[in-house]
Simulated scan of single mutants.
Amino acid sequence: MAFLKDQLEGFVPTQIQKEIIKGITKGSTLLKLSKVQPMESDKKKIPVLVDGPGAYWVGESERINTSEVRYIHPELEAKKIGVIIPVTKEKLNDTTINVFSELRTEIEKAFYTTIDGAGLFGINSPFKKSLFGSAETSGNLIANGTGGTFDIDVSNAMALVEDAGLDVTGFAGHRGIKNTLRTLRDTNGNQIYVSGVSQNELYGFPVEFSSNGGFDKTKADLILGNFDYSLVGIREGLKYEILKEATLQGHVMGDGKPLSLAENDMIAIKATMRLGFLPIKEDAFAAITPKVDKQD
């Protein structure tokens, strides 16, 4: 059984690593809706069918025409994402599995919040595109209230994706929009938004709500689209490193100074993983932007 003091850096044990990755996937709106691929290296080309084979009417003894199948090969590039968690020095005497079991929730939340912020809105993102940015570039933005009611706004935004020849497969929103969705009714008084035990649905498609920090509600109330065109690649391996003498600028102590591990007799655990993200069709996404208050 490995103790943290005997192995100050390396990979998180496989059994707990799988649980952490599972927790990150469960907590991330982007990962739940997107097409997720494993990555064996830092770059991976993924074949995406653009034009499929067609069928033809054929007369007796006539030659059957052949049709071209066309693929594009977008490349995912994995980028490093990391979190640093200060802990007491006593953790060095615990087993590696126990330490990461205790820190699992903090690691998962830090990762999935950052992943959602980057993929949905480009917040502190190493990637060139985001889903909201794709919708904005395509002009697929509908302001909340322009259709009279929110359900009409959503339908109009869906139509923008459908005009591109695609179907909407899901929605991503912030938790503050839940009440608006719960009040939606069709002409027969039936709920349009259905809150289920295993899945929430709007117009029959899944709705996922991102955690605070992962969704910029100043820019959008909902992001919707065909998430088959939102590619995420997860590079195998969750690494860690024990820091003993660093000064952590992001952790401010009661005296207003950054946390100095040596001075405060603490250590910090840095956990990192690699992940790639790419929206491969910008017009596959649309967004409902917040209401603009009218000026008197």
Rank of each mutant, 00 (worst) to 15 (best):
I267K: 06
A143N: 08
L278Q: 08
N188W: 06
P126S: 00
K294S: 10
F121R: 08
D216P: 09
Y56D: 09
Y71W: 06
T180R: 12
K35Q: 15
L92P: 03
E236V: 05
K217L: 08
T218C: 03
G148W: 09
F3M: 08
V36P: 00
K91Y: 14
K178I: 14
L92I: 05
G82C: 09
A118D: 11
S28Q: 07
P206Y: 07
L224N: 01
F111P: 00
V154S: 08
K89R: 15
R175E: 12
D167P: 07
V58S: 14
D116R: 13
G250H: 15
R70G: 06
V87W: 03
H73V: 03
F11I: 01
V69M: 13
R274H: 06
E282M: 12
E208V: 11
A78W: 02
L31A: 14
A284D: 10
V154K: 03
F3E: 09
G256S: 04
L224D: 00
L30W: 03
S41P: 00
Q191S: 14
F227P: 07
P47M: 03
Y193S: 04
V232M: 10
L33F: 02
Q17M: 14
K45Q: 15
I223E: 05
V292K: 15
L141T: 01
S211F: 03
T187R: 13
L181K: 06
L224W: 06
S67F: 04
N124K: 11
G52M: 08
G165D: 07
E75R: 11
T114L: 12
T96K: 14
G225L: 02
V161R: 01
L120P: 04
G276I: 01
S195P: 00
P13F: 08
I177C: 00
R104T: 04
L184P: 12
T114P: 00
K270L: 14
D283T: 06
N212L: 11
D6S: 12
E19Q: 11
E236F: 05
I24W: 10
I192C: 07
L243M: 12
T187D: 13
G170Q: 12
G256A: 09
K291I: 13
P126K: 05
K178D: 06
E68S: 13
G250C: 07
I115A: 02
E62C: 00
G148K: 13
G165V: 10
I177T: 09
V50W: 08
S125W: 13
K26W: 08
E19M: 12
S134K: 01
K26C: 02
I81N: 05
D167T: 11
A159H: 08
L33R: 06
I142Y: 09
F100C: 03
G27D: 09
I152Y: 08
V50R: 14
L31R: 12
I280C: 03
Q17A: 15
V292R: 06
T289H: 12
E102W: 04
G189T: 06
L31C: 11
D51H: 11
T105M: 10
I72G: 02
D116T: 12
A286R: 00
L141F: 07
K43Y: 01
E108L: 09
E236D: 15
T29W: 01
A2P: 10
T29V: 10
D255A: 14
L166A: 09
P206D: 10
A2S: 15
Y71E: 07
Y240E: 04
Q199N: 06
F121Y: 11
V99K: 01
E106S: 14
K18L: 13
